[in-house]
């Protein structure tokens, strides 16, 4: 009855094959099929940005993509950032600058910034604020997130 397909998606470098309903969103695929619960689901209509992941290296709302659309593609989630217990420079900068409080929006913000800092290694504050417009945070007031991002960029350029 249900429309299903078998898909193969490379998630964080791991090849995953599953039979899924075609109406399954990428966000639910990551969380419920692969148990990668780091990707958070907030509004489920593309506004809050909590579910942001990289698809083919480009940021996208995982709630607005279907899992079947990722068949044969590469997806990176927040789980790809740390090396075991060791945070990557972006995560470490968030920790050091208090760039998060409750942490719900953080995975989406980290993935947005992973793409952004890859393409803009030396951003200005205005550019950081512009790219953050796609992620809602109700705790921090963004100030600490901006500071963390600029600090992360500096560390990643080797200026720490």
């Amino acid at each position: 009855m249900a429309d299903t397909r078998t898909i193969t998606v490379t998630v964080n470098g791991r090849v995953c094959s599953r039979e899924v309903e075609t109406r399954l969103t990428l966000a639910d695929f990551l969380r419920h099929e692969l148990n990668l619960t780091g990707t958070h689901v907030g509004c489920e209509h593309g506004v809050c940005g909590a579910c942001t992941v990289l698809v083919g290296g480009v940021s996208a709302r995982a709630c607005l993509m279907l899992a079947v659309q990722c068949d044969g593609r590469e997806v990176a989630t927040v789980e790809s950032l740390a090396d075991g217990d060791e945070l990557n420079p972006l995560q470490q900068a968030f920790r050091d600058n208090h760039g998060l409080q409750c942490g719900f929006c953080t995975p989406g913000i980290l993935m947005t910034l992973t793409e952004f800092l890859r393409d803009h290694p030396d951003p200005g504050e205005a550019e950081v604020r512009d790219v953050l417009s796609g992620n809602l945070c109700r705790c921090t007031g963004y100030q600490a997130i901006v500071a963390a991002t600029l600090d992360a960029a500096k560390r990643m350029r080797g200026g720490a």
């Binding site: 940005g49 940021s59 709302r61 793409e115 790219v131 796609g134």
Partner: peptide, 9 residues
């Protein structure tokens, strides 16, 4: 138009 993530798609 929207945000970085929505313009990507």
């Amino acid at each position: 138009v929207g945000h970085r993530q929505t313009r990507n798609r």
